[in-house]
């Protein structure tokens, strides 16, 4: 038994630590099991420096086929669970095959890493970044250790940011004109605007503005689209008459939004929509959906 136990027991422990691990900003990320963990945060073009500590178990020497560290950017589609598409893959050899007698520290560095996509945890898709240390073994499975980290990329305010203005209606029934101050919002932005009633022949009960997220994954016949309503924000209570104009002011900060992601590595997209919904007294819903672009504003 002892022998067997000796076979399956990991012959060494591997610990990955970042050089600025104590000071680097951490962000909460939801795991599959619903728990939230704090992960160090990086952005594209950052250099990732750290070290890997390998320590033989119980001080016994062990043999290995070489030790390497990889930086992987992976997309995992849930309908194709287990298959990862690595869009980024960098490798650093830490050690040549040999024997390890005692604890050894291997510094590593990935300088100015291109990490174009942000970490994302969606309904049908996950995008994550990991540091993966592999200790090669003969005859038995390699030893693998992961360290996940988060990536967020910041954008400056867009140079062109037009308002969304539109007149919609149902003939002889309802005509409204709405205006959102811009078409691109950063995550802590507020949507300002107004709805102007040009014609009201139905008995409206209330009006709300919804923020919807549409996540589409896959392509062709294997396209999966998930739509979530993230916010239902009541704009108006009661029935307006012709000529009324109702203000809109919706702060985005309370909602868990991500930037808009368009066709990430041909695997998935995440888009945001504003859905203006008017509900009449018979609970019929009249709505108009408009896409908005969400971006992550570079904070000072």
């Amino acid at each position: 038994m002892n022998f067997i136990a000796g076979v399956f027991k990991p012959p060494c422990s591997v610990l990955i630590s970042l050089a600025d691990g104590g000071t680097r900003k951490q962000v909460p990320i939801k795991k599959d099991n619903g728990q939230t963990v704090m992960l160090p945060l990086f952005q594209s073009q950052e250099t990732i420096i750290g070290e890997v500590l390998v320590e033989p178990t119980q001080g016994k020497k062990f043999e290995h086929n070489g030790i390497k560290i990889e930086l992987l950017g992976q997309i995992e589609l849930f309908f194709d669970r287990g298959n990862y598409y690595d869009f980024t893959s960098l490798v650093r050899e830490l050690d040549v095959p040999g024997e390890l007698y005692e604890r050894k520290t291997y510094p590593f560095e990935f300088s100015t890493v291109e990490m174009p996509h942000e970490s994302y945890n969606g309904v049908n898709v996950r995008l994550r970044y990991i540091l993966k240390v592999t200790v090669g073994r003969n005859y038995v499975t390699n030893m693998v250790e992961y360290q996940e980290f988060a990536v967020r990329n910041y954008t400056p305010p867009p140079p062109i940011n037009n308002s969304i203005k539109m007149e919609v209606g149902i003939e002889d029934c309802l005509h409204i004109e709405f205006e959102y101050n811009t078409s691109k919002y950063h995550l802590k932005d507020a949507i300002l605007g107004k709805i102007y009633f040009l014609l009201v022949r139905i008995k409206i009960k209330n009006m709300e503005l919804e923020i919807r997220r549409r996540e589409s994954t896959g392509s062709g016949t294997n396209t999966y689209v998930e739509t979530e309503t993230l916010a239902k924000f009541e704009l108006m209570d009661g029935a307006p008459v012709r000529g009324e104009s109702i203000p809109i002011r919706l702060f985005l900060s309370p909602y868990e939004l991500t930037p808009t992601y368009r066709n990430i590595n041909n695997k998935f997209s995440v888009k945001y929509f504003l859905n203006l919904v008017l509900v009449d007294e018979e609970d019929r819903r009249y709505f108009k959906q408009q896409e908005i672009t969400v971006y992550r504003l570079l904070e000072d």
Partner: peptide
């Protein structure tokens, strides 16, 4: 006074 326009229901408004 502007924001209060959101209440178009007479009594509540």
């Amino acid at each position: 006074v502007e924001m209060c326009r959101g209440i178009q229901h007479p009594l509540r408004g």
